[in-house]
Nucleic acid binder design. Structure first.
Lengths: 154, 154
DNA sequence: CCTGAAAATCGTGAGAT
DNA sequence: ATCTCACGATTTTCAGG
């Protein structure tokens, strides 16, 4: 999909606050509400807007611990790799999974309510998985910035 | 704020798809639309719902590179620490900043359009900052899972 | 592609329980 | 706390440019 400045501006506004009404968006970008409506629908259909979500404060729901984990595999055989990816991705406590180049293979961002929940998770995800060589745990003392915002200044 | 099962269910639905209409939410949780409306307003006012955002596909807007960076500081003097935090948080390419325990001090998640943009960023954020001892770069080959979802099964 | 109007849907507050 | 109902606003569709 080809994006023009209107689309970029709309994306920028919506990734800052997706509750902005289409009427207000139309004023800010100088288009009619119906044009805005059509463009947003197209951006969603094309997958440029992947989802629209409420961002929940983990602390407010009793899950204050964020943990980063570096994971190194034993074998990078494709089927085993795929299996590990799936087990990570399917875990609800795992918010993010990156497959990376360098000293280790995966970086995970994990949310738990306490360390005992994390300890249980390590057993499920790492110890009993079979293909994990090592993993290194980093506990976040502070979540200084947490977003999925993509720079969109044209 | 104290959350009951209705709130948890609403949060769960909204963090999966915040475009779900309050009418549909009301059917799914067995409440009236106005009750849903009031609860959502309360969750927002209390900061349980921090924001509502459109999640944009970085690749679709020409910014396909995700980079993870481990940063170690020279000094953790409080004022210098604060300065570094701010410079990271204020950078639009920096999506996430975690201050962590362990071998290094910060983990960053960065989005760039290409490596030359990242190279420029390293100069601004690390080399010319003065208080950075080392940083280690990991390029994401694959973003296997990227969300901010908090587990909300009661 | 756009605008503008009509139709459908939605969010929200009042009043009652 | 909740519900129902009604109003106003918003979203969405559609005709015409």
């Amino acid at each position: 999909m080809l994006l023009d400045n209107y689309d970029i501006k709309l994306l920028s506004l919506l990734q800052a606050d997706s509750k902005t009404s289409q009427r207000q968006l139309s004023e800010e970008v100088n288009l009619s509400p119906s044009a805005v409506n059509r463009r947003i629908a197209a951006l969603e259909a094309a997958g440029v807007i992947m989802t629209t979500v409420a961002v929940v404060d983990p602390t407010a729901v009793g899950r204050p611990i964020t943990i980063l984990v570096e994971v190194k595999l034993e074998s990078e055989r494709l089927d085993l790799l795929d299996q590990v990816k799936k087990s990570f991705a399917n875990c609800v406590q795992v918010q993010q999974v990156y497959y990376v180049t360098g000293d280790f293979d995966f970086m995970l961002v994990i949310n738990v309510k306490d360390m005992s929940e994390y300890e249980k998770l390590t057993r499920e995800l790492f110890f009993s998985a079979g293909n994990i060589k090592t993993f290194k745990t980093y506990v976040a003392m502070q979540r200084i910035k947490v977003s999925l915002n993509v720079p969109l200044t044209i």
